[in-house]
Design a protein around this nucleic acid. Sequence first.
RNA 1: GGAGAGAUGGCCGAGUGGUCGAAGGCGCUCCCCUGCUAAGGGAGUAUAGGCUCAAAAAGCUUAUCGAGGGUUCGAAUCCCUCUCUCUCCGCCA
Length: 436
Amino acid sequence: MLEIQQLRTDLDNITRELAKRGYVFPVTVFNKLEAERKAIQTKTQELQAQRNTASKKIGYAKSRGEDVTAIMAEVTQFGGELKQAEIQLEQIQEQLQKILLEVPNLPHSSVPQGKDETGNMSIRNWGTPKIFDFEIKDHVSIGEGLGLLDFEAAAKLSGARFSVMKGSLALLHRALTQFMLDQHTQEHGYTEIYVPYLVNTDSLRGTGQLPKFAEDLFAVRAGGVSKDDNTPSFHLIPTAEVPITNMVRDEIVPIQELPLKYVSHTPCFRSEAGSYGRDTRGLIRQHQFDKVELVHLVHPDQSYSALEQLVGHAEKILQLLDLPYRVMTLCTGDMGFSAAKTYDIEVWLPAQNTYREISSCSNCEAFQARRMQARFRNENGKPALLHTLNGSGLAVGRTLVAVLENYQNSDGSVTIPKVLRAYMNGLDQIGKKGGK
RNA sequence: GGAGAGAUGGCCGAGUGGUCGAAGGCGCUCCCCUGCUAAGGGAGUAUAGGCUCAAAAAGCUUAUCGAGGGUUCGAAUCCCUCUCUCUCCGCCA
């Protein structure tokens, strides 16, 4: 959410900045509402002040046993007018709030301008894609070939875009998670945190998923779907960013506790509405996937250095796994709703002969903090908004895909990256024999 | 699921219809005194808005005592709904 004062005083600039990300701010509607708001708010407050003074007089007079019928009559006179003004004001405020909640964040000045992913800028590459001297398979063929990946079973249990993993593949999936968590907690200074996978709407509004992106979520209610009331009680988290970041909602964090750095492993649930036909094969785009998420809650002065740090931590995982990747700065048109600046890390997938997103690291500045009133007590002892950052470190399912494809052997087996072997009961290869 | 108790400022805690944005205490800030790992005295100390103002400063003003609604000229206080916390019982991994 943007600051309303900024919109009032600097509307032209903001409109121009928002246009860079393809967002058309409703200037006319906003100005009209603001003018109305100003008039009616002033009127309301004047009437309220009158009423308060009169009420105090009544109390004072009564305590001295004087007659109060005259003053009471006076108050009753404009009581109706006040009530009407209050209702009107509330309606206008609601409309303004609705507009505000749907406006995306302003892009940081360092963000390249562009209208879609073709405008993203590669800022560095790491590693060299391996040359294979045999015909490579994609991760689906590898997993199914080993009998360890079962999309038919998943379709039976749930439907499309779900997966079942078995045996050493399930173990590899778990090993990746464990490895990432250990790396972040022991080497990068994060506090591991276990959070709810079902959250309320306040949390989703706080991080920006609601009210605008409800169709991307799964809603849940106790006792099944009720016919007379379809209001969802909870939503399944689309990312751990939601519960973790909302830890500081309506909180004032003591400055000496900053920065807060949390890591959490959770499943993520996304309806992927609007992505029909994309990545229908395999593990790339699922309704349910695991992710290790990193969140920083920091002093505003620190948020851009924190962003660099955060990306570095995610990159470190790929380096240790020896998977080639590149880092992209997302352009204005491709950034998420809440982000002021985003780096995507894309991992090399040999079967697709391209780099695919495996992590997205964003600085949301005060955008989310303002929505959720997440604050700290600053140097002057005054509450001020925090800056919030989040990034995947990494998406586990996609990392698994990358390992399978990059570490595949000509006989259909997969070599286990060295750093994972300790988590794999010493296994150095998933092969036909290692299948169970 | 059943029964009961509760939710007040940074913290503790008073307050059951009127001069209450809220006593008192703790903490914190500043000043004085004293003089040295202490004690005492005084003052100050919530948040979010609106308006005036070129702006700052300042002033005026509104809202906020878990949330929302209601009664009333007036609500922390009365009524209704909800949320959360605690205690006991039941159930349960």
